[in-house]
């Protein structure tokens, strides 16, 4: 209990440090999956550890202590009161953050549903007659691809095919739910923020690799990305939210061979997540023993 209960916090930091490195070295499909799984496990373990720390305050409740003294049990207080209160506070913050993330998710879905209105249900591509160059996948059943007319006219035929294949890969491999899971994990455990960013980058890389395989040409895929980015860049500085050199890194990645799967690294990441869960479980049994020892 003394150490286990704090370990998910340490593991969150480790995972966040490892995430960006793994994002560059490991095949994106594998890396995105293991990082998301580990992030979800770690976030749940972290939240649960905070619940345990807060629950340990019960040991300080006067009736419990009085009863324990009457029974002649010494009360071994595993958690200082200050930490218990801090844990309560952290839990409230987490609840608020998760609520905000879930609401944002629903808001996005509502907005996306409205974009599909008026288009036949069995059509994959939805074009928006807009001068703003944009392209994104709309998850759902069936998933749709939204591209603006400005983006379509900026690209050459082979590059349009890359764009469509890229967005199709997002839908086929369910990148929407994957990113949502990573987002919620980072909302529950702010230490996992870098992992969420890494997963966001990895699903783009994953879709790039799929598109390159679909058109059978990495060079054309890189050029499609470059042209789309330059077109969108000209639309104004705040038209697109900024991520750290993501497009340049994706273009660079397409100019070399696809990264290897590196199973040992993937397993190590999964182990981090599993370890967080196991240690949290161990801390739980410790606390239960301690409290029941006091209460019995």
């Amino acid at each position: 209990m003394r150490f286990d209960v704090y370990s998910p916090l340490v593991l969150s930091l480790l995972l966040s440090a490892a995430g960006p490195v793994i994002a560059r070295r490991v095949a994106p499909a594998l890396a995105a999956r293991v990082l998301t799984s580990a992030a979800v496990l770690t976030a749940v373990a972290t939240a649960w550890s905070l619940v345990l720390l807060a629950a340990a305050l019960l040991g300080d409740v006067p009736p419990v202590i009085r009863e324990a003294r009457e029974d002649g049990h010494p009360v071994a207080d595993p958690v200082p009161g200050v930490i218990g209160f801090a844990a309560c506070l952290a839990l409230v913050v987490i609840a608020l953050r998760v609520r905000r993330a879930v609401r944002a998710e629903f808001r996005t879905r509502r907005a996306l549903r409205r974009l599909c209105a008026g288009h036949p249900a069995d059509t994959e591509l939805i074009v928006a007659a807009s001068a703003t160059p944009r392209a994104f996948a709309i998850p759902g059943r069936p998933g749709r691809i939204l591209v603006t007319s400005a983006m379509l006219s900026a690209l050459r035929p082979a590059e349009r095919r890359v764009l469509l294949a890229h967005e199709r890969a997002h839908l086929a491999h369910r990148h929407g739910p994957l990113v949502t899971a990573a987002t919620l994990a980072a909302a529950a455990d702010p230490l996992l923020g870098p992992v969420r960013t890494a997963v966001g980058f990895l699903v783009e890389r994953w879709a790039d690799e799929q598109a390159a395989a679909a058109v059978g040409d990495r060079r054309t895929t890189a050029r499609a990305l470059a042209r789309a980015a330059l077109t969108a860049g000209g639309a104004g500085p705040c038209a697109l939210h900024f991520t750290d050199r993501a497009v340049t890194r994706r273009v660079a990645a397409l100019q070399t061979s696809p990264p290897p799967r590196l199973w040992p690294v993937a397993l190590a990441v999964l182990l981090l997540g599993t370890l967080a869960a196991l240690l949290a479980a161990d801390a739980t049994s410790d606390l239960v023993r301690q409290l029941s020892g006091v209460l019995s």
Binding site: L112, R134, F136, E204, G233, L240, F242, V247
Partner: peptide, 17 residues
């Protein structure tokens, strides 16, 4: 709400451009 989605491309710095 759409910025939260995975866009095909994101913003560029001048040297990236």
């Amino acid at each position: 709400p759409i910025a939260a989605l995975q866009q095909f491309v994101t913003g560029l710095r001048p040297e990236e451009e």
